[in-house]
């Protein structure tokens, strides 16, 4: 059995198991390339990511520069129109995509790392350590994340994208830790883990060599959700006015549009692209996540 099959335990009554054992990884790829949800979701994310990476290279002026006539609707020259001050909305959008991806990625990575460390240790070691980590997880879980971030950002003046993302990561890991703990708990009793323990491997080795690889698909799914979650939190913070002071993000665009009465003035081109961008990224991540889940977990596949 390969890693992927172990992570999603198959029904032993499943006749396909008896029929033709195909390598798990190859099988996953086989289904991945045929899964519409995964392809569509990943496609949208990739296109937006590329736009965020390449788009800014084609734009000469900084995104907040007053380059054109104010309050212009979309035109061949300014694809997404201009703001009240004559900033190019398209330029802001592509730069904003970059920032938003960076915030989501960094926040997702930080949260995943903490969630993994806490989840693995609690699930694998059990006992008192589990009790303590569980308590910690529950506490952070109950505290409303955004409220804590408000206080932190307001006082400490967190104004860089990186710092913002790290603080988001520091507060949004609990459910991931919980889920990983539960998975680890169920793997802990498996033969191959017992074997590793008997052969004298230490905790760290068992976790990194035996447990983590066996739930790699699960960890990937968790990371994707944390990624999307970080984007949403970051954009909320930006919108409240606690975003990065330098540069531009999709959340900041929404904040500016709202602050300068874009909707009262009917400047739909100012507030629709950033919100649509966030929705598209996060929605595509969710859909890709469902697709991946189906790839890894045969029970969910359509029959």
């Amino acid at each position: 059995m390969t890693a992927l099959q172990e992570a999603a335990p198959r029904d032993p009554r499943d006749p396909r198991d008896a029929a033709a054992p195909v390598s798990g990884r190859r099988e996953a790829l086989h289904f991945a390339l045929r899964n519409g949800k995964l392809l569509a979701g990943a496609g949208v994310v990739l296109v937006l990511l590329l736009l965020g990476l390449i788009g800014p290279l084609t734009i000469d002026a900084p995104p907040n520069e007053y380059v054109g006539p104010p309050m212009q609707g979309p035109s061949p020259e300014y694809w997404f129109g201009t703001t009240t001050f004559g900033q190019d909305v398209f330029a802001q959008f592509v730069y904003g995509l970059r920032t938003t991806f960076a915030a989501g990625l960094l926040g997702g990575v930080v949260a995943s790392l903490i969630g993994m460390v806490v989840g693995f240790l609690a699930g694998f070691r059990g006992g008192l350590l589990d009790e303590i980590l569980n308590m910690l997880t529950n506490i952070v879980l109950v505290i409303p994340t955004l409220a804590v971030l408000l206080i932190i950002n307001a006082y400490l003046g967190i104004r860089s994208v990186a710092a913002q993302a790290i603080f988001i990561g520091l507060t949004s890991w609990p459910w991931a830790a919980r889920a990983i703990r539960a998975q680890t708990f169920s793997l802990r009793g498996r033969d191959f883990v017992d074997l590793a323990r008997l052969s004298g491997s230490n905790t760290w080795k068992i976790i990194t060599r035996e447990i983590a690889p066996n739930m790699s698909s699960y960890l990937l799914l968790t990371f994707i959700l944390l990624f999307g979650n970080s984007i949403l939190i970051a954009s909320s913070l930006d919108f409240i006015g606690l975003g990065p002071t330098e540069g531009v993000s999709l959340g900041l665009m929404l904040q500016n549009a709202s602050q300068w009465s874009a909707m009262q003035l009917g400047m739909w081109w100012w507030f629709i692209p950033p919100g649509a961008g966030i929705t598209a990224i996060v929605g595509a991540l969710y859909v890709a996540n469902v697709g991946l889940d189906e790839v890894f977990n045969p029970k969910l596949r359509e029959t």
Partner: peptide
């Protein structure tokens, strides 16, 4: 038979 993506498994 069981229908699978790889074809029919003739279980019975």
């Amino acid at each position: 038979h069981y229908r699978t993506l790889r074809g029919d498994v003739r279980a019975l």
